[in-house]
Design a protein around this nucleic acid. Structure first.
Lengths: 282, 282
DNA sequence: GGCATCGATACCCTCCGGGTATGAATCCGG
DNA sequence: CCGGATTCATACCCGGAGGGTATCGATGCC
C-alpha cells in the first residue's frame, strides 16, 4: 500500500464526498475514484458504500481510516525527524519539548537547567501548546518530548516516565465566597452557579457539547476565571503563576495529577535519552 | 514520502549494499540507486555515505532507518487489520492473542474462559510465539493483543494494563544439587558450572554474543534444561508445566515479573476493549 | 598494474497516475 | 411525473515516473 493511496482514502473517508476530497487533494475526481477502487480491489475489501448520492464508511473502512491516519502520521514523523536530524548535523542540533502553557513551570525550569548542565547537552526549544495538540506534535515528529499530565492527557503509544504527582486546586475569581474556605470538594465546584468548568478541545479539534466556555490553553482559562466566567481545576503547581484577580483553594477529593515525560518509541536520539534520564533524577 | 521509497531505503540501509538490496527487492540496482538519490534530494539530506567500495549510514540515515521501519510497520498493520476487519464481517470475526509459549498458562486459561462468557464475545485465536516476535506481531497487525512480561519484554508504543506480579523460579535439571535448597539467589545461578543461562533472540532476530545455548521458545528452553545443558529463570507460574526431569527452586533476589496485557494504540475494536476489560477484572 | 567489485550514469520503454468528456443513478422542485 | 442538478463511475488520452540493459568510473586487492 502506497502512502498516496492511503492519503487519498483517508481524505475521502473524512469528507465522505469524492468531489470535495479531490479538491482538497488538488486532483480531479475521476482519478480519485479510480485510486480508491484500486485500493479496494487490492485489499479485497469494500471500504466505502457508495450510492450515486451518498458515501458511507464500511466496517473495514472505519478500521483503515483509524489505522491509516496513524500510519500516515508515522510516515510524516519519519520524514520530519530525518530532516531535523540532518539539519542538526549542519547547524546546531535542537531538541523540541512541548508542554501545556502554564503547567508544571517550576518542574520545567528545573529540568531545563539540570539538562543544560549535562555534558553533551543540546539547545532545547520549548513549545507551549494546548493540551490537545501535544500528542499530535509528538506523533508527527514536530516535537521530541512532551510533559503530559495523567490522567488527562492520553499517553497512547508513547514511552513515558513518571516525574511526580501533585494534588489539584480550584482556581476561582478573587473574592468568590468559596475562597474563604480552607478546602473544597468536587461537589462544591459542580454546584457553582454561573461558574462552569471550561471545555477543552478533542484530539480532532472539536469541542464536546455542554455548558462552559471553550478554551485552548491555560492563559485563556485563567483570564476567563478572572472575568468570573468559569472556574477551573488545576495542578497545585499552577499556584505560582496565579496573578491578580485569581484565588486558589485545594480540592480534597480531586484525582491526583501525575506529570510524565513522554517521547515516541523508536527514538534513537541520545539527546532525548539524556533529557529523560535527567528528568527522572530530579 | 512514498512507502516504496521508504522500503527501498530501509532495505539498502539494512544491507549497506545496493546490489544485494536490489536483489532482495526484486529490482535492478540502477533504479534503486536513483530512487535513494531522489529521496535524499527531496529530503535535502544525505542518508548514506557511499564510496565506490562501501556504504555507511549518516546520522540522518540512522534516524530514517529507525523511524522508517516503524512507519512501514504501521502501514503494514493498517493493511492487515483492514483485511481482517473485512474478513470478519463476512466470516466469523476472530481476535488474535499472542503470548509466549509456556508462560502464564493459568492466567491465559482464566482470561479466555472469562472473556468467552462475556456477551458479544468473539472467537479468540491464540498464537504462541517466542518472546522476540510478540512486539513485531502486534506492530504488524498480525495480532490484536499480547500478554507480555515486564521487565523482559519491551512495551514500547503499546497501551498496557497490569494483570499481576509474580516471583521467579530457577528451573534446573532434576537431581541437581541446588534443587535440595529451599531457595537460591541469582549469584548461585551465575556461578553454576556448565549450566549457563540461555540466550534469547534480539528483536531483529540475531543473538547476543556470549555462552549459553540459543533458544527461541520456552519448550526448547525446558528441553535444554532437562538435558542438563542450561538452567533457566522463569516466572513462578511456569511451575505448573514442568514435567519429568525438571525441578524448580524459588529465586529470592530475582526481579518480580509483571504480566501485562498489551494492545496497539488507535485500536477501535470493541472486541479488544472487551477482552482488556475482562482481563483487568480477573 | 591489471582485475574484480560496486555505485553512478545514459538511454530506452512501458505502464501508471492524472486530465477531460461523458454516462448512469438518484434526489428534488414544480 | 418529468426535467434538471448532483454525484460517482466509465472511457479515453497523454506525459512522466519507474524499471530494465549497457556501460562508465572509482576503488581496493592480488
Amino acid at each position: 500500500m502506497e502512502t498516496r493511496e492511503l492519503r487519498y482514502f483517508v481524505t475521502v473517508a473524512e469528507e465522505l464526498h469524492f468531489g470535495r476530497a479531490a479538491q482538497r487533494l488538488g486532483i480531479a475526481q475521476p482519478p480519485l475514484s479510480r485510486a480508491v477502487q484500486q485500493l479496494e480491489r487490492r485489499l479485497g475489501a469494500a471500504l466505502l458504500d457508495r450510492t450515486s448520492r451518498t458515501v458511507t464508511l464500511t466496517e473495514a473502512g472505519a478500521v483503515l481510516l483509524a489505522e491509516g491516519r496513524a500510519a500516515l502520521d508515522a510516515v510524516a514523523a519519519a520524514e520530519r525527524r530525518t530532516r531535523r536530524a540532518a539539519a542538526s548535523t549542519t547547524g546546531r542540533p535542537a531538541l523540541v519539548l512541548v508542554t501545556k502553557a502554564g503547567a508544571s513551570n517550576e518542574l520545567l525550569a528545573k529540568l531545563l537547567a539540570a539538562y543544560a548542565a549535562e555534558p553533551g547537552a543540546v539547545p532545547v526549544d520549548v513549545i507551549l501548546s494546548g493540551p490537545a495538540e501535544q500528542a499530535r506534535l509528538l506523533r508527527e515528529g514536530r516535537a521530541d518530548v512532551a510533559l503530559l499530565h495523567r490522567p488527562f492527557d492520553p499517553t497512547d503509544g508513547f514511552d513515558t516516565e513518571e516525574l511526580g504527582t501533585e494534588g489539584q486546586i480550584a482556581v476561582l475569581p478573587a473574592g468568590h465566597p468559596l475562597t474563604a474556605r480552607a478546602e473544597v470538594r468536587l461537589a462544591d465546584l459542580a454546584a457553582l452557579p454561573g461558574l462552569p468548568l471550561p471545555r477543552w478541545p478533542d484530539p480532532d479539534g472539536g469541542y464536546p457539547p455542554g455548558p462552559g466556555p471553550k478554551v485552548r490553553d491555560h492563559a485563556q482559562l485563567l483570564q476567563l476565571v478572572a472575568l468570573g466566567r468559569a472556574c477551573a481545576l488545576s495542578p497545585e503547581s499552577c499556584r505560582t503563576n496565579l496573578h491578580d484577580g485569581l484565588a486558589a483553594v485545594p480540592v480534597t477529593d480531586a484525582p491526583p495529577v501525575t506529570t510524565v515525560i513522554a517521547w515516541p518509541p523508536h527514538s534513537r536520539s541520545r539527546a532525548v535519552a539524556d533529557l529523560v534520564r535527567t528528568a527522572t533524577r530530579l
